[in-house]
């Protein structure tokens, strides 16, 4: 079954093309990695799927539903981990999780929420720390826990590794992998080739709003992916 579908999606801001006839399709349980430099249109594409940006032309479907026309229905089944996870600094990690979880249709119990935090490997001693005292990596973990607690069928992640130290980045990749293994569809936007190569089932290359390549990651190893990326960038120049 198709989880995410974009057909000829274009979007421009102030005459600058953020997305230019983008079409893609992601099956259930797949992980699509969107690669591209800054300003390539990765975040815009995620925002289109989230229903936060309306495309000028074309249409997108999330689990068969249009996020612009039917945002509430779509948002029941999706979750989002932004580049900088926005949490309430005066609340603890657990309180933040409880708060965001309260908007779910079927909220988790406190024990389940704690388990989510364990699942994302947030050390228990940080569960009751105010998030203003947590590092960026820890906040990312809390963000992922929020997504997990929602039991979302599709998770969008925007630059999840940016700003994380290597150990945290590696841990975070493991958690994404675990989530993927549960059958959750994931759309990842990043320019981190290294972490993406082992995770994504498909990789799309974006440049100036155009999706030029959409390849299966099984066809490429990390080195080939890097080469492809660099070639693609040069071509675009």
């Amino acid at each position: 079954m198709i989880a995410l579908q974009a057909s000829d999606v274009s979007k421009s801001f102030d005459n600058v093309n953020a997305l230019d006839n983008v079409s893609l399709q992601v099956d259930n349980g797949d992980v699509l990695g969107l690669l591209g430099p800054n300003g390539a249109g990765k975040t815009t594409l995620i925002n289109v799927f989230l229903g936060l940006v309306k495309p000028d032309t074309g249409r997108v479907l999330v689990l068969g539903k249009n996020p612009i026309e039917d945002p509430r229905d779509v948002r029941n089944d999706i979750s989002y981990v932004p580049e900088l996870v926005a949490l309430y600094p005066e609340l603890t990690a657990l309180q933040n999780l409880e708060f965001f979880n309260s908007f779910n249709e079927d909220p988790c119990s406190n024990d389940e929420l704690r388990q989510c935090l364990f699942d994302v490997r947030l050390n228990e001693k940080f569960h009751h720390n105010k998030t203003k005292t947590l590092s960026k990596g820890m906040c990312q973990k809390v963000g992922l826990a929020i997504a997990l607690a929602k039991n979302a069928r599709v998770i969008f992640m925007d630059e999840p590794w940016t700003g994380l130290d290597p150990e945290s980045a590696s841990e975070f990749s493991d958690q994404i992998r675990t989530t993927r293994n549960r059958g959750t569809t994931i759309l990842l936007a990043t320019h981190d080739l290294f972490h993406l190569s082992g995770l994504a089932s498909h990789i799309g290359l974006l440049r100036n709003g155009r999706l030029s390549n959409l390849v299966s990651s099984h066809e490429l190893d990390a080195k080939e992916l890097e080469q492809l990326y660099l070639d693609h960038m040069r071509q675009s120049d």
Binding site: L52, P82, L87, Y88, F103
Partner: peptide, 11 residues
């Protein structure tokens, strides 16, 4: 902070 956007996505 971005929490508002996050809240909208949380429905």
């Amino acid at each position: 902070r971005g929490t508002l956007r996050f809240l909208w996505v949380q429905n």
